[in-house]
Amino acid sequence: MPEITLYFWIVKILATTVGETAADFLNTTLSLGLTGTTYAIGAALVMVLVFQFRVRKYVPAIYWLAVVLISIVGTLVTDNLTDNFGVSLTTTTIIFACVLAATFAVWYASEKTLSIHTIYTYRREVFYWVAILFTFALGTAAGDLLAEQLAMGYLPSALIFAGLIGIVALAHAKLKLGAVLAFWIAYVLTRPLGASLGDLLSQAREDGGLGLGTVATSAIFLVTILGVVVYLTKTKKDVTATA
């Protein structure tokens, strides 16, 4: 796992934004449909996770490619439930919150820790990636619920989630909120933040966005992610002492 630095959070937010816009791009612009997009990205994620589980150390390119793909899959899971099966965003938000809580409960009961710095067994890594998937699905549902169903708009929603992340950071720094708890709360909140930013940039102006489109938005963020990952690969600034 990477060290939790500023670079981690930058790439995480970029990846969550791509998860929102790339899913829309493949589904709508390329006309693959939700089902076709889900199969294609799901297969790609499985292949990348095979490499992630086989490497014996943190490799930025593999790890962050897995995060980008699982971000897209998390978006697609929520979109399939709401668009194909008619499940409301309120219901999906509650469902994924409960499923994520159950994942953490089983993980902790099994391993006695939720720290990503202790992920050095296959079982703990399985728990980690399952939890990551549900954070993305939950974040997508919560972000869309606030911005669209509750009609808050993309920019106000992004500011709300950014403010909540700031409160978590302050609580950790000043009120001694535990590092592990603070990490996972912030990790969940960065997903709806990224989703709101992605929609803000890509959606049409009449829908409350800036009209950049999914192609331009996805390309900008993917290129930025690539640049940061190349930098991290060369400098190893996010490699822990035991990685």
Rank of each mutant, 00 (worst) to 15 (best):
T78G: 11
L114F: 03
Q52E: 08
V126P: 05
G86Y: 01
Y120I: 15
W64L: 11
G86R: 11
I116P: 03
E111Q: 15
N80V: 09
V99G: 04
W107V: 02
P60R: 06
E111V: 08
V46L: 15
A105V: 12
P60N: 13
R54Q: 15
V59G: 08
K112S: 12
E125I: 05
A97V: 06
Y63W: 12
T103S: 12
V126L: 14
E111H: 03
F85E: 08
I94Q: 02
R124F: 15
T92L: 07
T103P: 07
D79G: 03
V59C: 15
L100H: 02
I119Y: 09
I132H: 01
A109V: 06
W107I: 04
T113Y: 07
S110N: 08
F104Y: 14
C98K: 14
V106D: 07
L133P: 00
A61K: 13
F136Q: 08
W64Y: 04
I70Y: 06
A97C: 11
L76G: 01
D79W: 01
L81I: 14
S71V: 04
R56N: 15
Y108C: 06
T93R: 00
I116R: 00
R124C: 12
T93V: 07
I116A: 04
E111I: 11
C98V: 15
N84G: 10
V67L: 07
K112N: 08
V73F: 05
F51W: 09
V73H: 01
I62D: 04
F96W: 03
T91N: 04
T118E: 13
L89P: 00
L76V: 06
I119S: 05
N84V: 14
Y122L: 12
T93I: 04
S88E: 07
V48K: 02
L114Y: 00
S88H: 08
L133K: 03
V130A: 15
T103C: 13
V48W: 00
A61I: 13
F96G: 02
S110H: 10
I62G: 04
S88M: 12
T121M: 11
K57G: 14
V130M: 15
V87K: 11
A105S: 09
F85L: 05
I62Q: 08
A97E: 04
L133S: 03
Y108L: 08
K57A: 13
S110C: 10
L69Q: 04
V77T: 06
F127L: 14
I70K: 03
C98R: 13
T92Q: 02
F136W: 06
V50L: 13
I72S: 02
K57N: 13
A66T: 11
M47D: 12
T113A: 11
L49D: 07
W107L: 06
V73R: 01
L69E: 04
W107C: 05
V99Y: 03
V73E: 00
T121D: 06
W64A: 10
